[in-house]
Structure formats: structure tokens, C-alpha cells
Design a protein around this nucleic acid. Structure first.
Lengths: 355, 355
DNA sequence: TTGTAGGCGTTATCAG
DNA sequence: CTGATAACGCCTACAA
């Protein structure tokens, strides 16, 4: 068993009694090789345990066969969301025999450019896209290939996969209204995020506006900052100011868990006292008590498809569709129910009995 | 603004009026360059927006400056655990200016070897390590650098970071016994995993044995397969066969959520009826109701440190410590309490009132 | 169908 | 301190 570490294509060629280029052809399975030769060389390759030097291949071929997912978030505690993107994208890249890399640093525009210039990657996947995103403008100008998870205000010529937040919110309200709810609060992204043009924030808000209008509801909107450790304060205040509330729609996927906990702590029963509809990953929806009625946010699929799109783009294979807006799919679980009876005494009695 | 895509070191050299080697020296900040020259060339580099071609560098230098994390799991729905490993490892690699890649394919031994042979990576991080792990043997024989998240039976010469499952379990039992519990069940990894020699399974079981002996407890052990969608059956049976149960220790981090839900569904109150101690990530412990008393499983830190260890190894910097067993840290939250009174009638009354 | 030779963009050795 | 020049291992016309 030779120390195969530094076997080169030349040695393979010699051992097989052919030229280097023939081996190269076989490595890249070109058609113009005699079947007999191919088999013989393949055998030698196996026997020697040869793997072509990736860097040399990439240098010579002028392609890195690598893509990267840019994760703009710096927090240590990640969520199922990012997880789904990561794994989906990684799996798709692996299927296509592309090297997949995860860039987690706060990436400056220079750094982003140099990723391309230094040929570390052939393309990237962008997350957390804003309506007007400077990264997008930059990449577009340089004509560097990329795919977005999310999308911008102007997407001509761009490739993306995104979730239809607007209709997700509308569907959530539809569901609650069908159940008879009339006093429904919306836990929105912070105005800061909305004003910054963060895609999901903007579109969720748009959906909210439409839902209000469609059903003639009163606006009860609470803003929640992402990543706030304790949002129970906001919940307390909300219930205080709006005792008539029987429904709640949340859009921030991970924060919903905090909301649920706060409701529990306030002695509210879900869905008997209050119905909750969320946007959540399968996993998150299942993990809380009670399991959440929610529109499924398919992170794995999004990551997977983004990655496939990018690879196809790089291979210059024709993209069937290059702009995908995934329709929301509301899954009814146990956090929503009919409007409680106007006299909510039962709960009070129970609470008393419990002491 | 030149299309900087294909600027080479030669062009920089020419523009700066120096030789290629001088530019190369500056790029790799070698000491033997006149300060004036360095500044001048730096300026040119900036002006031109030049980034050295990564593949060429790696080919010439004979180092890929890349590492990979091998994720053996194929499931689409990942957990916070893997997430922590990924992000921790990715961040550490980025800090060290190493390219970080996530390999998610079912990686055969051949494929693993070829990762090294093809110089795609300089080293890898292994997850899900078994007491006798063929991958480890292979890499060790070939003398390829790697670091484990987990560890083997024989670790001489190996580098790893792992969590002390054995003592984590002991601490969990200690805590419950201190609270007065005497009838405590242990939800263990499947015997299949134990017999296969999966590290955490083996060591948790060892801890369990010791805990039983230490406190003179009766053995009540339930095995749970990882990834089982519904473990409520096992919980039902457990409570059925052991009505005297007041405590529960779970070791499978993600499965605990299912256990908790099953307990809820059976009308059990935590911790009034039954106390639960888990091993869980911060996030998971917080997410369920009630928040779990648990030993913290620090995935981010483990990923981060594994990555740092590997990079140091590759840089041939002396490793201070290369075998780390993180001590368990029990965090008391709200899922454990004193043993309930022998007459558990209150709950029954309440339940009746509720109908 | 196969072989020859030049080049991909760096680094590294060795003079100067 | 700086500059030629030979690797690094492979790909790809072009020629045979």
C-alpha cells in the first residue's frame, strides 16, 4: 500500500502506460477515450488510491467548484432556521459535488468581493436580504453569480428563493377569523427592521395591512425585537391594554416560543383563552406546548433549492425557474380554537380552586 | 475601476515597480522587506483591488488552509446540537482565516481519505465518535491530522474535546436524591447504540450504573431510540409499570422534548408529580415548559474549541491541552422539586373540576 | 483515440 | 533586502 498522499497524475499515467492527458480525460470523464483504456486506467487509479489534487485542478480549470453560504448573524445561539438553511444548502452542494463552505464572519463588502476575486468560491448564497441590499448591488455590478434566500425590491436578473411572508400572514388571519376571532393582535418585526427594509419585516407588515382591511379588523400591533431575551413584558402590556384579545399572530419564528411561555406564565390557556398562529419551522411548532398552528417555514427546502440553483447557474445549465416564492402552507395544530365564551369565568374559578 | 477579477501578482509587481517575489513576501507578511517598499506595494494592492488567487496559493504552498466538519447524520431535521457544533467550528475557523466546510454526505472511508489526498482539506473534525471507530483508526494510520468531538476507548496520541456524560448522569441523580427522590427512572440510549460502542451511550450507561450503586437505587431503565417520532408509548408503559416513580433522568438531548410532552398528555405535572433532569443545550432547556433542570451541553463551545485545536495542530503550534473532557454543569430550573406528598389527591380533584 | 507542451497564479530557493 | 526561476499538479489546445 503506497503512501498515496503525493501520487500525481503523472505517476498514474506511467503506471498505466498512457499519457498524462489521457488520465486527465478519464478523470473528467470526457467521451473521447477508448473504453479499454479507460477501464485499465481506472483500475490503476483505484489500485494506487489516487485522488487528483483539488487545488491544482481548480487552478488549471479556472473554477473552484466551491460555493459559500454567507451567514450574517453573529450570535452563538442559532436557531432551527439557520440550521435548515445550512444543512439543506450543504446537502445540495454535496450532491452536485461542490465544496460547500460556511462563512460566518461579519463579512465586509471587500471581504465578499475578495471571496470571488481570490477564486475561493464561484458563487455565494445570500441570507437576510434587504429590499435594497448593497451586497446585491455590488455583486450584480461585478456580475458575480449568486443566489438569495430572500429577495429585493427590484429583482430583475436575480435568482432567489423566498417564502411568501405576505400571504402567510394573511392566511393566519383568515384562519383566526374563520374561527370567529375578531380581536387579534399581531406581533410584528420591529419598526427598525421594517424601516431598514428587511424583506420579511416589510412583507409581513404588508400582509398584515391587507388582512386588517380584508376582515375589517382593528389594528393591534406589537413590535418585538429579534433576539430579545425576555419578551414577556410586551405580552403583559398587550393583554393589559387589550383584555378583549382572543387571537394572536406571530411572525418571528423563534421569538414565538417566548410569547407562548409568557402566556403560560400569565395563566392563559392556549387555545382556550387565546389562539395563536405562528410562522414556524416544523420542529419549533412541534416542540412547544401546545403544538402550534403555524405556516410551515421550510428552511431545509429553501437552503437546498438555493444551493441547487446556484450550482446550476455556475454550470451554466439552463435554470427552469430562477425566482421562487414558496406559498405558505398553514398547518392546524393545537394552538387555535374557537373564540372562548364571552364569560371567561371558568378559568378564574379553576385558578381559585388551585390555590 | 479595473475589472479586478483576473489581476495577478505579476501585474501588481509591475505596477509597483518591484518583482513578483517581493509582492509575494508582502502578501505573506514576511519580515524581510523594506518598510517603504511594503507600504508602496500595499497601496498598489489596494488601488487595484487585488486578492491573491486562493487555489494557486494553496497549490504552491502545499496547504489548503481548509478544514471540514464531517457530519455523519443524514436527517433533514437537525437539532440545536449540530447547529452549535457547526457554528462554533465555523466561527473558530474563520477567526483563524481557515476555510471551513461542512461535509454532510454519507462519507465512506474512501471518500474521507480522498478528502486528504486531494488536498481539499488539511484536517477534519469528527463527530459521533464510537469507542472503537474505524475512521479514527484509518486516519491515525495514515497520520492525517484530525480532532474529535467525542473520544474513543484508546485515545493515545489523539486530540479531542468531549462532554463528560458519565459525571453528568451522576450529577443528575445526585440532584434528585438530594431532593428526596428514591424512585428514579433513566431514559437511556438504546442498547443497540451502547453495544455499537457509541461514546455517549456507553459513558452515560456507566454513569448510570455508578449512580445506582452510589445511592442504592433500584434500576428502572427505559431505552429510547434516537429520532423516534413518538416516544409517548414508552412513557406510558414506564409510568404504568412504575407508579411509584417521582423522578426521571433523560440523556438524549432532543428526545427529552417528546418525553415532556408525553408526560403532559398523561396529565402529569412537572415537577409536582414528577421531576425531570435532562442533558440539554441551553436553548432546548429553555424552550420547553417548564424550563428544564439540566446539565448544560455546550455545543457551541465544543465546536469552537475543536476547530481551534485542529487549526493549531495544523499550524504546528504547540497544543497546550489536546484532550479535553468538559465537566458537567447542572443548572437547576423548574422541572425538579421535592418529592410529592404520598397522597397525590390534589391533582385528581383538580382534574375533575376541570371537566 | 492519444500524446506533447504550454500555462494556470503562487510560493520558495538561491543568488545577488 | 530584492529578483530570477523552478516547482506545485493539473487542464487543454493542438498536433499526431
Amino acid at each position: 500500500m503506497p503512501e498515496s498522499h503525493d501520487i500525481t497524475i503523472a505517476e498514474v499515467a506511467q503506471a498505466a502506460g498512457v499519457s498524462v492527458s489521457t488520465v486527465s480525460r478519464i478523470l473528467n470523464n470526457r467521451p473521447d477515450v477508448a473504453e479499454a483504456t479507460r477501464q485499465r486506467v481506472q483500475q490503476v487509479i483505484e489500485d494506487l488510491g489516487f485522488s487528483p489534487h483539488a487545488q491544482a485542478q481548480r487552478l488549471a480549470a479556472g473554477k473552484s467548484r466551491s460555493i459559500a453560504l454567507l451567514n450574517p448573524l453573529q450570535v452563538k445561539v442559532m436557531t432551527y432556521l439557520e440550521m435548515g438553511f445550512f444543512v439543506g444548502a450543504a446537502n445540495a452542494a454535496a450532491e452536485e459535488n461542490f465544496f460547500f463552505s460556511l462563512a460566518t464572519r461579519p463579512i465586509s463588502e471587500d471581504h465578499l468581493l475578495s471571496l470571488y476575486r481570490s477564486a475561493q468560491v464561484d458563487g455565494v448564497i445570500l441570507m437576510e436580504v434587504y429590499m435594497n441590499d448593497s451586497r446585491v448591488e455590488m455583486l450584480r455590478q461585478h456580475n458575480y453569480p449568486f443566489v438569495m434566500i430572500g429577495h429585493c425590491a427590484n429583482n430583475t436578473g436575480l435568482h432567489f428563493i423566498d417564502f411568501d411572508f405576505e400571504n402567510a400572514i394573511i392566511k393566519a388571519f383568515d384562519h383566526l377569523v374563520e374561527l370567529g376571532h375578531q380581536h387579534i393582535a399581531f406581533m410584528a418585526f420591529s419598526t427598525q427592521l421594517q424601516q431598514a427594509g428587511f424583506g420579511p419585516a416589510v412583507r409581513a407588515q404588508a400582509g398584515y395591512k391587507k388582512a386588517l382591511q380584508k376582515h375589517g379588523l382593528e389594528a393591534i400591533c406589537v413590535e418585538v425585537d429579534m433576539g430579545v431575551p425576555d419578551i414577556s413584558g410586551a405580552v403583559v402590556q398587550l393583554l393589559d391594554e387589550h383584555p378583549e384579545l382572543t387571537g394572536l399572530v406571530t411572525v418571528q419564528i423563534e421569538e414565538t416560543v417566548g410569547v407562548i411561555r409568557a402566556l403560560h406564565q400569565l395563566g392563559k390557556t392556549i387555545p382556550d383563552d387565546i389562539s395563536v398562529v405562528a410562522i414556524a419551522s416544523e420542529k419549533t411548532a412541534q416542540i412547544v406546548t401546545p403544538p402550534l398552528t403555524a405556516t410551515n417555514f421550510p428552511t431545509y427546502e429553501m437552503g437546498y433549492r438555493a444551493s441547487k440553483m446556484l450550482v446550476n447557474l455556475l454550470k451554466k445549465e439552463p435554470l427552469e425557474i430562477s425566482q421562487v416564492l414558496l406559498p405558505p402552507d398553514l398547518i392546524v395544530r393545537q394552538s387555535t380554537g374557537p373564540v372562548p365564551n364571552p364569560a371567561p369565568k371558568r378559568a378564574a374559578i379553576l385558578a381559585d380552586t388551585a390555590r
